[in-house]
Structures are given as C-alpha cells and as structure tokens.
Design a binder for these strands. Sequence first.
DNA 1: TGAGTTGTAGTACGGCCATTCTAGAATGCA
DNA 2: TGCATTCTAGAATGGCCGTACTACAACTCA
Lengths: 202, 202
Amino acid sequence: MARPREFDEDAVLDAAIQCFWNRGYEATSMKDLVGRTGISVASLYNAYGDKRALFRTALDTYVETSIGERIRRCEAAPPRQAIEAFFGEIVTRSLTDGDQKGCMLVNSALEVAPHDEEFRQVVADALVRIEGFFIRCIEAGQADGTISCALTAQALAQHFLAVLIGIRVLARARPQGALLEGIASSALAMLGATGAKKKARQ
Amino acid sequence: MARPREFDEDAVLDAAIQCFWNRGYEATSMKDLVGRTGISVASLYNAYGDKRALFRTALDTYVETSIGERIRRCEAAPPRQAIEAFFGEIVTRSLTDGDQKGCMLVNSALEVAPHDEEFRQVVADALVRIEGFFIRCIEAGQADGTISCALTAQALAQHFLAVLIGIRVLARARPQGALLEGIASSALAMLGATGAKKKARQ
DNA sequence: TGAGTTGTAGTACGGCCATTCTAGAATGCA
DNA sequence: TGCATTCTAGAATGGCCGTACTACAACTCA
C-alpha cells in the first residue's frame, strides 16, 4: 500500500451514477464522467476499470442503495402500509426530480439488458427482488386480513411490478402529478377494501 | 423530376425501423443502417435527411402502423373484447419476438423523450392515443354493462397504460410467458365480472 | 532516508462516428 | 440527341470515442 486516493470514492461513484442514470450508458461518454466526477480519466480507469465495469459498479450500487434501502425502509411498516409507502415514495421521487431521470434500473432494463446477458441477469435479479418485496407484503396482508385474496400474492405482486415500471417510464415522458398519482392509487385499490374502521367511516 | 429511386422506400424505412427498434437511437450507427437497408449512406442522407430526421420518420411510421393499426383492428370488436384483444396481441408479440425488441414507443419514451422536447411530445401524443383507445372502450363497456364501474374510465385507462408499458419493459428483461400473461390477465380482471352467461357457468 | 508502490495528470493513439464532397450514372423532357 | 435534374457510390473529413502510455507526485515501510 502506498499513496492513498485523493478523491472521495463515494462521491465519485455517486457522480457516475448520476451521469448514467440521467443519460444512460451509450449516451454517457468518458468525457462526461470526467467532467461530473472531477477526477481525471486515468483515475477513473485505475479505480473502476473500463466504462462498462464502472457502469456495472454504478448499477449495483444504485440497486443496493436506492432500491434495497427503500425496500428495507418500507418493509418496516405493516404489510399494506409498506406497499402504500413504496408507491408513495416512487411517485414523489418521480415528480420532484427535475431531471426526470426515472429509475436507473428500469432505464437499464430497456437499454442494456436486452443485448447483454450479464446486465440482463443483474436487472432481472433486481426486479425479482422488488417482486419478492411485494409478495412478502401481500402474503402477510392476506394472512392478517388487510389485503384482499381476490388474486394470488404472486399474481398481484407481478401486477404491481408492471405498474411500478409503467409509472417510472411515464415519469420520463409524461411527468404529470395527476397521472402518476392516479395510477398508483388505482393500483392500491387492488389491495381491497381497508379494515372495518375506515370502511365504517365512509 | 429525373432519375427515380432505385430502392424500395418502404422496405428501406422498415429496415431502419428494425435497427432503431432493436438497438435504440444512440446505439444504432449510420453504418448499421447502411448494412441493414442495403443502400448507401449518401442515399440515406438524400432520402431522409440526417440520422435524427430518419429516426423521427421511423418512429412516426412505427406509431402509425404498429400502434395505430392495432388500435383500429381491436376497436372493431365490442369494448371488452377490444381491450382483451389488445393485451393479447401485446403479450403474444412480446413473446414471439426473438430479438426481444419490446415496443419502439416505450423504448423511445425512456431513451429519447426525456432530453429532447420534440420527441417527448411525439411519445406523449402516442401514449395519449393509446390511453384514448382504452378510455373509449371502457366508457362503452361501462355503458353496456360489460365493464365494471368501480373505477372511472380515465383512471382505469391510465392504469392499463401503465401495465401495458410494464409488460413491454419486462418483455426485454424477463421475457417469460407466465409472467407477461399473468400480468395481462390480472389487469383484465379489473374489468370486472363477465356477463351473466359466463358468471352463471362458474 | 530511500526504495518500492500506487495514484494522478496529460497526452497520444487508433478507430469509429455522423456527415459532406466528388464524380458519374440514370432518367425525363425538349 | 442533348440538357437539366436526381440518384448513387465511394472516399474524404473532422471530431469524438474509449483506452493505453509516460512521467511524475505522494505515500508506506524498512
């Protein structure tokens, strides 16, 4: 071990994530990355390998932090509220992001997954992880009666996954609050009528 | 007027659509287009302008043919069947396409719409057109009692739009029949119970 | 202190990119 | 037939791409 890094590795990786997230893989050049990260291209190559490897690191980090943490955060709540919180966060994030970057995972699912087996697997695994979150919540909710049993947990979870992706795509092309919120709330309606308390009030 | 075109304009445009559809805008090079269309780069520039203009023509044509025609075809059927047919076609197409190209409109919604106002508008308009198809079908179905009134026509239509997009994205990352078919059928379940005949049988 | 190691900066490199130019071939019209 | 016009082919162009190389700076450890 000799000379230590001069740059903040987390900050640089975060800057790289922002680039790829915003523009995608192809449209992001090494020059863009150098400009955004503030370090030289040699340092980038030295620290992360080539562009593809840097993208892989960026995507993995994004999935682990943005998505993984959201799942953990939401899953702390009771099942039904966990799903509501998840959609709520997604919609809020989509609307408050001025760059309209959408979700880096969804963007990658379209851009890099189809023609690259490695990335297809990374994306598919992350999607399965989200689906797993939904399944766990729905099963728990169906067990304690807070979620309807009209559909199987898996069917409903996969439906939610599709809606989630749809929201993320629409966030980039039609970023209107009413649209995204409406879609989320019609999805949540599929959870079934809420408990007796709320029902009685209406 | 002098020397006429030597190439089949429809065939060339179709080849260009295939390129852009499969790889996206950025990842498709003029060299790719020359190879796929079979005509020289000079002819491409002469006939369609630059790469961006060719993409615009390709996208417009795609929307008009692939999507416009599907809407017209499906809308010939009664409202509920129209929606069922629409989802059925999408799922079938997604699964039988060996290239897993998904939908060129959805791909464009993520790749070119966010950073290009012209294309954002083109994509948004096309999405509104699909939404309009759903709204017309749902309103008609709610009027004749074949579709549930649990949600407003617009809310359900927008929900369907999101699910549709979700299916198209998943088709590129997780192209499994059971997944896509399951999502479509859980969406169709939102149309509500079918007519008395079918209900009585069960 | 100095030898060894690793990070950094700048630059050079070959290749491919979109685009344009040049020359000539094919057609319609007079 | 000859002129004007349009299409086609291929090469040329300038720029940017990702990447590798070279020289040097900064640190650890003996």
